[in-house]
Computed example of a mutant assay.
Amino acid sequence: MPSLQAPTARLHTAFAEAHQEWGPGLHEDGFGLTADDDVETAGGFAAWVSRLTRAEDPATDPGIGHSHATYRWMVEDSAIQGGIALRHTLSEALGHIGYGVRPSARRRGLGAWALTEMLGEARARGFDRVLLVCATDNVGSARTILRCGGILEPGSGPTDRYWIAL
């Protein structure tokens, strides 16, 4: 049974396995990973996890600015299967919610399950609707968003924009 867990340094090995499966680059949507993050070393990984944790509460680190977000990892049998983020302010490029499921865990409903859970978090934080953005050719993600109530915004460009009313 999967669970959504707050980022923790004790899952470094599990994250490294998922990160390796995705391959090089920063394409693990929902993890808040940037080019400046060192996720290879234990110290770098712990610093990254600390940044993600501080981002959840504006009072803990006002210097984070617009990047306040709630990050959760999809964990099943001690393996990280994906990540999901709820941005507390709208990012036109990224939307309110971004998620990613590692390749070997796709097509099992984990994305829809995690998105449904995070919609509850958005509702609890007072959102009345959220924006999700995905590449136009990402059929799997589009299906997931539609299954969770997403409505395609007309006139989308190279990325599709979906709104979900809460």
Rank of each mutant, 00 (worst) to 15 (best):
T41N: 09
T41V: 02
F45G: 03
A46D: 08
A47T: 07
V49C: 12
V49L: 10
S50K: 15
R54S: 12
R54V: 07
A55C: 14
A55Q: 14
D57F: 14
D57N: 15
T60I: 09
P62V: 07
G63N: 10
G63D: 12
I64W: 12
G65E: 11
G65R: 06
G65I: 02
H66K: 14
H66I: 11
S67R: 13
H68L: 11
A69Y: 11
A69H: 05
Y71P: 00
Y71L: 12
R72P: 04
R72A: 02
W73Y: 07
M74A: 09
E76H: 06
E76L: 06
D77E: 15
A79Y: 01
I80Q: 03
Q81N: 08
Q81E: 08
Q81R: 08
G82V: 06
G82C: 02
G83E: 04
G83W: 08
A85F: 01
L86F: 05
L86D: 05
L86M: 10
H88N: 10
S91V: 01
E92K: 08
A93T: 06
A93G: 02
G95F: 02
G98E: 06
G98R: 05
Y99D: 01
G100P: 00
G100R: 01
V101N: 04
S104L: 07
S104A: 10
A105S: 11
R106T: 11
R106F: 07
R106D: 01
R107S: 13
R107K: 14
R108I: 02
R108M: 05
R108T: 02
G109P: 06
L110C: 00
L110F: 13
L110K: 01
G111P: 00
G111S: 04
A112V: 02
A112P: 04
W113E: 05
W113C: 03
W113S: 00
A114N: 02
E117S: 09
M118D: 09
M118N: 03
L119N: 06
G120M: 11
E121G: 06
A122S: 10
A122N: 05
A122W: 12
A122Y: 06
A124H: 13
R125A: 15
R125D: 10
R125T: 06
G126A: 11
F127L: 13
F127E: 01
D128W: 12
L131E: 10
C134R: 06
C134Y: 05
N138D: 15
G140D: 07
R143C: 11
T144V: 15
L146Q: 14
L146A: 15
G149S: 10
G149D: 05
G149H: 01
G150D: 00
L152K: 15
E153F: 02
E153K: 13
S156E: 12
T159R: 12
T159I: 10
